[in-house]
């Protein structure tokens, strides 16, 4: 394993920001190469943990260099400055680094960061970006694959996660890492991780195993893990949105991943000052809860749940 420095930026009052990658050089130059990016945002603790556990796994668990066949680059964190402050975005100007690719070497600070990172990530056969949702909800682990015209569904299936969200492009997606990676010839996908900021011991395992499974399936490593799911391809029309007509304290009574029946109670809203239940939330359809609002206090008309309708899976 080689530790490579991708970028260092000085700061007036903080330690320099040094972004490092862990490069595991493969034994077979013809084997597929992969680059993996962990935390781009400051509150993406699970992506950080999962990426760092993969570094440990490749270094200590596999150990034998012969078993690493293709080049694997892991960048566990790009945004240390945000992680260390519990901020979500670049702390000075709140720029979302995943909205600034491919970057610009002579531009603003965050454009320069994205440019250097993108240079380091370019040329790999496959790319994985570990992310969390940006809508104040947590979710089951799933693949997000943009309908960019360059996406590769067969490789996304190799992670063996339950869902692949084949996502319609929004204008802001054109400056995401995934899209630009794809544009430049890498079969890139995003694994959307639960938005947990506290990690339970095994909290990373589903994501971690999906990456190991992927690395094995594309021939980058020789290390077999159990088969995963035959992934369901999901489109927006297959997701039922559940909004709350009342604000207050939000208590979900079902978690992400739970199968629910139509009209089953899945959550309730409590009057924040008087403690009484002001609204009960019922599932509008049979399905699986994919996302749950991730805050104890909820606003009127906020999205409380997303449910994957059974017929759509």
């Amino acid at each position: 394993m080689k530790k490579i420095e991708i970028l260092t930026i000085e700061s007036l009052n903080r330690s320099p920001l040094t972004i490092e990658g862990y490069l595991f050089e493969g034994s077979d130059p013809k084997a597929a190469s992969v680059a993996i990016v962990g935390a781009m945002e400051g509150k993406t603790v699970l992506p950080l943990y999962s990426a760092s556990k993969l570094v440990e796994f490749l270094r200590n668990e596999i150990g034998n260099k012969e078993k690493i066949r293709g080049n694997i680059l892991i960048i566990p964190s790009i945004n240390h400055y945000a992680l260390n402050l519990g901020e979500r975005f670049w702390p000075l100007d709140k720029t979302d680094l995943n909205m600034i690719f491919p970057g610009y070497g002579a531009g603003e600070t965050t454009q320069r960061i994205a440019h250097k990172v993108f240079e380091a990530l370019s040329g790999y056969d496959y790319g994985i970006s570990l992310e969390t949702r940006n809508d104040l909800s947590s979710c089951i682990s799933y693949i997000s694959l943009l309908q960019s015209g360059y996406e590769d569904i067969p490789s996304a299936r190799k992670c063996g996660l339950r869902l692949i969200h084949h996502k319609e492009m929004k204008p802001t997606d054109t400056v995401s890492l995934q899209y630009n990676w794809q544009l430049w010839g890498t079969k890139a996908l995003s694994i959307i991780c639960p938005s947990d900021t506290k990690i339970e011991t095994d909290g990373y395992k589903e994501i971690f195993e999906s990456m190991v499974r992927f690395l094995y399936a594309i021939g980058s490593i020789e290390y077999k893990v159990m088969l995963g799911y035959d992934s369901n391809i999901v489109y927006n029309k297959g997701i039922e949105i559940v909004k709350t007509p009342k604000s207050g304290i939000f208590i979900p009574t079902k978690k992400t991943g739970a199968s629910v029946a139509k009209e089953e109670m899945i959550g309730k809203i409590i009057n924040a000052l008087e403690g009484n239940v002001v609204h009960r939330i019922f599932a509008p359809c049979d399905g699986v809860i994919t996302c749950v609002y991730n805050n104890g206090l909820i606003l009127e008309n906020a999205l409380a749940f997303r449910i994957l309708k059974n017929a759509s899976a």
Partner: peptide, 25 residues
Amino acid sequence: RGFPIYEVDLNRSFPGGDKEFLPGQ
């Protein structure tokens, strides 16, 4: 600058929609 709680830039959230998260609405 952004919509508090959700931390999103409203001027990167248009056109939005009724079935979107609250800033999108």
